[in-house]
């Protein structure tokens, strides 16, 4: 019976989970717009996930751009492109500057998760590349840029789990006897005990060779 139950439960356990990703344009001094679905993150296993964009995602960029056209004076540096991770309760939001989008070739989604057995993420970090080291907006305006290149965007999804702090590398405790007393170390052999055979051999060799040369010397005299 248990085996049968396990058989049915197994596919459920290996079925990949997914979580939706949303995005929007945020003008800091304007009204907050609503998030639109951008795609989905599919957890392939506990260590990897992939991003599947929504078919209409590309159109959204055009809509965002059109929104910007309607506004008279906009500080490019302060227009944010936000990506939100759907989760129970409040969604988690990460932002980049909108002005970077027209020239990017890749994006990275870092999902923070705690439990590798149940791949659900609590936070997201979103990055786009390449951008200038100081994060300044490109000189060329981004308000009327085209966003077709975003369809070919190289998207990387990374899963990050918290580190467990290292443990102190304690010294090995002294060995104990079965009675719980510290085991007496085997007394180390003395130099003569260790090497007596070599010494003996050397002595024998010395004696034998020494006697012969003395005789030889005597004969010469």
């Amino acid at each position: 019976m248990l085996l049968v139950l396990s058989f049915f439960l197994l596919p459920l356990a290996v079925t990949s989970q997914q979580v939706n990703l949303y995005h929007r344009l945020q003008l800091l001094n304007g009204q907050q717009s609503t998030f639109i679905k951008r795609g989905a993150i599919v957890y392939e296993d506990s260590h990897s996930a992939s991003y599947h964009p929504s078919p209409s995602a590309l159109e959204h960029y055009g809509q965002f751009s059109a929104t910007l056209q309607e506004i008279d004076r906009v500080d490019q540096d302060r227009i944010l492109y936000q990506v939100a991770l759907e989760r129970d309760g409040d969604w988690d939001i990460s932002s980049v500057k909108w002005c970077h989008l027209p020239q990017i070739s890749s994006e990275t989604l870092i999902l923070h998760t705690t439990d590798t057995s149940q791949p659900t993420s609590h936070a997201i970090d979103y990055f786009v590349s390449p951008i200038l080291p100081d994060g300044a907006c490109p000189v060329k305006g981004s308000l009327s840029a085209s966003f077709e290149h975003l369809a070919r965007l190289n998207t990387t999804v990374l899963l990050r789990t918290p580190r467990l702090p290292p443990l102190p590398e304690l010294r090995t405790p002294p060995p104990l006897t079965p009675e719980g007393k510290p085991a007496e170390p085997v007394p180390e052999k003395s130099f003569i005990q260790k090497y007596w055979m070599y010494i003996a051999a050397a002595l024998v060799a010395l004696l034998m060779s020494g006697g012969a040369s003395e005789e030889g010397q005597g004969g010469q005299k």
Binding site: K97, P166, P168
Partner: peptide
């Protein structure tokens, strides 16, 4: 990576190696 002068929006800001040790 030049982290001291780099913007927070650059991806290299997460390119970090921590060296850790635990003490009692």
């Amino acid at each position: 990576t030049g982290s001291s002068d780099m913007t927070s929006y650059k991806e290299e800001m997460v390119d970090v190696t921590p060296y850790e040790r635990s003490f009692v």
